[in-house]
Design a protein around this nucleic acid. Structure first.
Length: 574
RNA sequence: CGGGCUGUAGCGCAGGGGUAGCGCGCUUGGUUCGGGAUCAAGAAGUCGGUGGUUCAAAUCCACUCAGCCCGACCA
């Protein structure tokens, strides 16, 4: 490609609003362009990188038995109603009506579509196991897109789906994906860790997320430095300490002005772990008729801990949660700031920290009053679950080391869906024994644009991008500094003819402009053609990753470049 | 959806009742030609939109749209 003809151009200044380095460089180098909030175009350079990433993904998916298909972005709402997600997912799922008034949705993922496909294709155990994948646009009307390509509304995702006759089969395909994902990220050059994760709106049992650790990440990952366990904070477990003691009679005492745990503990001169905190949330549930309703949830946890909302949502079986407002709490006879599960007539979820502790101080559901010595079982009941939020310094449940916390960006995930979708959409097969069974499914995603955004964060310096050879838009960048482009043209054509992706700066700009643009775009190998070396029938070859420029005779250039590229490939695959 | 900020030339910004400016970029010509050259001459903006106040609005007021940041939210 000749730069004089390149559709995009570089920007000297970062467009306002580009807060992360990688995002700024993708914009300045002309890889992407923003059309609206969370809506981006891929320009020629960016799209070339995207296509290289996609090709790596295709190869690795094919390698574990995937078959590429393409499913529609627009789905009839019917299948989404069948699985219930039409009702359980809020505004993130965009709905519209077609010309005759049929309900339609913009697919934000393709479990419904693929399960509908599978129920038509798969009728017998003989057709299992199977696996399909596609690379398709998703639309998710995120309430707050941000951070460039990290969190967008429209994006391309590779999603694959596995079909098995039993959980053993699913385990195998899941394991295959687990490894394939590491190969994909490795080949792209992105360092990731796999963390245990919440299954969220996907439902299902086991799930992992692939995280690129970065301070600009929005997910919190709990990491054990000793045994290496990594978990999304949303589901991270940790070892809780208990302080069993003899159960005492409860007693109501006056505690004026102690609406927070800190105030209460200070007023009574007790540690916060001697208190029970009641947290009120409004949960959205789907009733038998498919209608949504909000119900108050009282979450009880020991005062020294905090509630992890994702855990609470799972324990409660709610579609989503939001903090309850004071009036909503009072309406059910409880008192904000002095809340107590005692006598509660709404759903109560109790963290085991509170359930297994004795004689905690809880609210009395009257302002200014608390109850001493409350005990789970005797004074109140409820569903017990782990709903506590893990944080830095908590104890690893596995090896007793002190946990640490890091920020990460989720670039991929894998889910064991099980039969959630096959059951709701009646995707069944006839097994060897003649019985009809639901297909056991798995679902596996990679956000392509987000992956590129992470690579941009990982591979950049003060001058610009420096993407790995495997995903760089071009392999070689020819910078011509001579007026007569005859020799550069010849070199450009010769290299291109050997199948190398070459970007040729044939513009009539000054050397400085060309060098700076070359640094900014960051093609791995740079050939500088100038009078300085041309006198000796030589050019300079320099790597974007660093090191000195090397003078190479033109006659040896083809071999030299080919050697460099294969050396680079070798290094990147280590 | 709450809180904050910003919309003026392709990009980055200034101006703040009297009819629009700077830097970069762009066009043409000259001189340059190995790290964002230089001189000269140009082109380019319904000042996000609508309504109002005023003799007069980019500027003041109201509403609205869009984008960004924080939070809520979120495979």
């Amino acid at each position: 490609m000749r730069m004089s003809k390149l559709f995009s151009r570089t920007l000297r200044e970062a467009p306002s609003g580009a807060e992360s380095r990688g995002y700024e460089l993708l914009l300045r180098a002309g890889f992407i362009n923003q059309l609206g909030a969370g809506i981006f175009s891929q320009l020629p350079l960016g799209y070339r990188s995207i296509k290289k990433i996609e090709e790596i993904i295709r190869q690795e998916m094919d390698r574990i038995g995937g078959q590429e298909i393409l499913m529609p972005v627009v789905n009839p709402a019917e299948i989404w109603k069948e699985t219930g997600r039409y009702y359980s997912i809020d505004k993130e799922l965009s709905r519209f009506k077609d010309r005759v008034g049929r309900d339609m949705v913009l697919a934000m993922t393709h479990e419904e579509a693929v399960t509908d496909l599978a129920r038509q294709q798969i009728d017998s155990y003989k057709r299992l196991p199977n696996m399909v994948y596609h690379l398709q646009t998703k639309w998710r009307d995120d309430p707050r897109p941000r951070a460039g390509l990290i969190r967008v509304r429209e994006f391309t995702m590779k999603d694959s789906y596995t079909f098995d006759k039993d959980w053993d089969g699913l385990e195998k395909q899941y394991a295959a994906h687990y490894d394939a994902y590491f190969r994909i990220f490795k080949r792209c050059g992105l360092p990731v860790i796999a963390v245990g994760s919440d299954t969220g709106m996907m439902g299902g049992k086991i799930a992992h997320e692939y995280m690129y650790l970065s301070p600009i990440g929005e997910d919190s990952i709990i990491i054990c430095p000793d045994c290496g366990i990594t978990t999304n904070k949303q589901v991270a477990e940790f070892k809780k300490d208990y302080y069993p003691e003899e159960i005492l009679e409860s007693e109501i005492v006056e505690t004026p002005g102690t609406a927070t745990i800190a105030e209460l503990a200070a007023f009574l001169s007790i540690p916060t772990r001697k208190t029970a905190k009641a947290v009120f949330m409004m949960g959205t549930f789907t009733d038998e008729n498919g209608e949504e309703e909000e119900r108050l949830i009282t979450a009880v946890i020991r005062g020294d801990l905090d509630v992890e909302e994702a855990k609470l949502q799972n324990a409660a079986g709610a579609n989503r949660l939001r903090p309850a407002q004071d009036e909503e709490i009072r309406k059910t006879g409880m008192e904000p700031g002095y809340g107590s599960p005692i006598g509660s007539n709404c759903m109560v979820i109790v963290d085991d920290s509170a359930a297994k502790s004795n004689n905690l101080v809880a609210g009395a559901n009257k302002a200014g009053l608390h109850t001493l010595h409350t005990n789970f079982g005797r004074d109140y009941t409820g569903k017990t679950a782990d709903i506590a939020s893990a944080s830095e310094g908590d104890t690893c449940p596995n090896c007793d080391a002190s946990l640490t916390i890091s920020k990460g960006i989720e670039v991929g995930n894998i889910f064991q869906l099980g039969t959630k979708y096959s059951e709701s959409l009646n995707c069944t097969f006839q097994d060897e024994d003649g019985t009809r069974k639901p297909v056991v499914m798995g679902s596996y995603g990679i956000g392509i644009g987000r992956l590129l955004a992470c690579l941009a964060e990982e591979y950049c310096d003060d001058s610009g991008l420096k993407l790995p050879l495997a995903v760089a838009p071009y392999q070689v960048h020819i910078v011509s500094l001579v007026k007569n482009n005859e020799i550069p043209e010849k070199i450009y054509n010769e290299l291109s003819d050997t199948g190398i992706d070459v970007l040729f700066d044939d513009r009539k700009d000054s050397a400085g402009v060309k060098f700076n643009d070359a640094d900014l775009i960051g093609i791995p190998v740079r050939i500088v053609i100038g009078n300085r070396t041309l006198k000796q029938d030589a050019v300079e070859v320099k790597l974007r990753s660093g090191g000195e420029a090397e003078q190479v005779p033109i006659s040896d250039l083809g071999q030299k470049i080919s050697d460099i590229l294969s050396e680079m490939r070798k290094l990147e695959s280590l």
